[in-house]
Design a protein around this nucleic acid. Structure first.
Lengths: 144, 144
DNA sequence: TTCCTTGTTGCAAACGTTCGCAACAAAGGA
DNA sequence: TCCTTTGTTGCGAACGTTTGCAACAAGGAA
């Protein structure tokens, strides 16, 4: 459900300027239902227009993350992905073997987050959060 | 409690060769009680001997992580740290504002890990695991 | 509408990390 | 002991990402 104008409004309300580059990048990640790497966003940009600089793509994605409009995920092996945060926090199970990513809901771990807040007086903001391990298929075929 | 010879033996038992470079890197991270970045390891190396190549430092740290002798931590803002895994899994609370790192024990979140395993049939291996949020001091001084 | 302020962009350089490759050397066998 | 095999190293190039800076342009004021 893309709401590009909502994202743009939020940015404008925060005092940021709306540029053609930002509009295009927001449109791309809002319309793409899944998470994307910066390089994938770049490719979509190139397909549409005379290429935006890659530094601008990174800066715009960072801007969205900083303002809570998108999430940044560490997919392991050094890869980073982004997605709009329409559905609240995203928590991922990343398989160390095959790299598959399973999305879970925050409520599945809320008990532990509450416990951490109580014990350590630490305000958990798990907007991007990955648990690394082995998915069922990979666990069945290896033992380490 | 450094047990360099234990680490070296484990590597040899796995079929890896023991080189002066590996001995030195293992000695450095085993004797340093806290987590270190690759660059910090490199500095310690330089202080002791005619510099080992940085690529060798990264390769050795990766080797230790892959063989369960060390852990790799994502400290947020793109920084990565390493530490020997003498005390079992390390779970960190990383403050998004000041970057402070608080170590917690696995038992604090074991209930959620068990729940994830049950619900998603996913074998959690949280040897390196970070929860991002705000520490008490930073939470008290800002609201976002 | 035009002007001005200042946030944003593109570029190029730099960063931390990884990779390919030829030279080297650890470890086992003769 | 020396030889052989092959895993490891150092080097340089490349990767993905971030940064500094001068030129540009969004958006408000006149």
């Amino acid at each position: 459900m893309p709401h590009c104008h909502t994202y743009l409004k939020r940015l404008r309300d925060h005092g940021y300027r709306i540029t053609p580059q930002r509009e295009m990048i927001i449109q791309i990640i809002a319309h793409c239902g899944r998470h994307m790497s910066a390089e994938e966003v770049m490719e979509k940009v190139r397909a549409k227009t005379s290429s935006i600089n890659i530094a601008t793509v990174y800066r715009t994605l960072d801007l969205l993350v900083e303002n809570g409009l998108a999430s940044r995920f560490d997919l392991g092996n050094g890869n980073t992905a982004y997605a709009t945060s329409e559905h609240g926090p995203h928590i991922h199970l990343v398989c160390k073997h095959c790299g598959s990513v399973t999305e879970i809901t925050e409520s599945d771990i809320s008990a532990s987050l509450d416990r951490i807040e109580d014990l350590y007086d630490f305000d958990c903001r798990p907007y991007h959060f990955s648990v690394h391990g082995l998915c069922r298929d990979c666990r069945d075929t290896r033992t380490d």
